[in-house]
Amino acid sequence: MLELRLVQGSLLKKVLEAIKDLVTDANFDCSATGFSLQAMDSSHVALVALLLRSEGFEHYRCDRNISMGMNLNNMSKMLKCAGNDDIITIKGDDGSDTITFMFESPTQDKIADFEMKLMDIDSEHLGIPEAEYHAIVRMPSAEFSRICKDLSSIGDTVVISVTKEGVKFSTRGDIGAANIVLRQNTTVDKPEEATIIEMNEPVSLTFALRYMNSFTKATPLSSMVTISLSSELPVVVEYKIAEMGYVRFYLAPKIEE
């Protein structure tokens, strides 16, 4: 028996919009810790990890650890039928091949339930160790989204370089080249407008902009994004989900051919 009641149902809607273009089918895992997912994109270049902690739900009942295979496009279709202010409850019975999403309007005058077929998905679960990063950049998520969008009109890849001067996003393409430098800026009125750069050592890595642009679909989830870089590791692009958890995207760098 599974029953997860999320008062801020819009969070789940935003999570689906953030990941559905990257991942087609995925297993959602439910345990005492929370509702989570780990999945690779179809070309096995990027990995997404989602955690919605049990404490973030108004009611969280998960009698045993369960893994439920879902088509994210179908799940998104159903969640789009929930209002932005609706309370969403996810319900499942042991051994059932369906899951139910219940949507309640804030005034309780409309209650809808949508039943979705589950699917069997054979997926690898990867262990992601804690790591030390050469540099961690925390910046407004809308700014990061804007930079990725702007650079993708010039080139296909972005070089992200962190030095003591700041963080530089560079690209090059047939029509020319572009460089955008952000300096650390903590003297802003609101904390969510700050750019904070922690650098242990300089780092410079190249990534496919197509994937970076896909990650920025998570922008509505968080006003800030954290980009963790290390020369031996995939970049981690993390969007925290208020009080509940995170969506993290991992992308391996491109190497010189």
Binding site: M40, S43, H44, V45, A46, L47, E124, H125, L126, G127, I128, P129, A208, L233, P234, Y250, L251, A252, P253, K254, I255, E256, E257
Partner: peptide, 14 residues
């Protein structure tokens, strides 16, 4: 996709 390292090259199966 030229020069792109697959992500599972970095993490071990758990």
């Amino acid at each position: 996709d030229g020069g792109q390292i697959p992500i599972h090259a970095f993490f071990v199966k758990s």
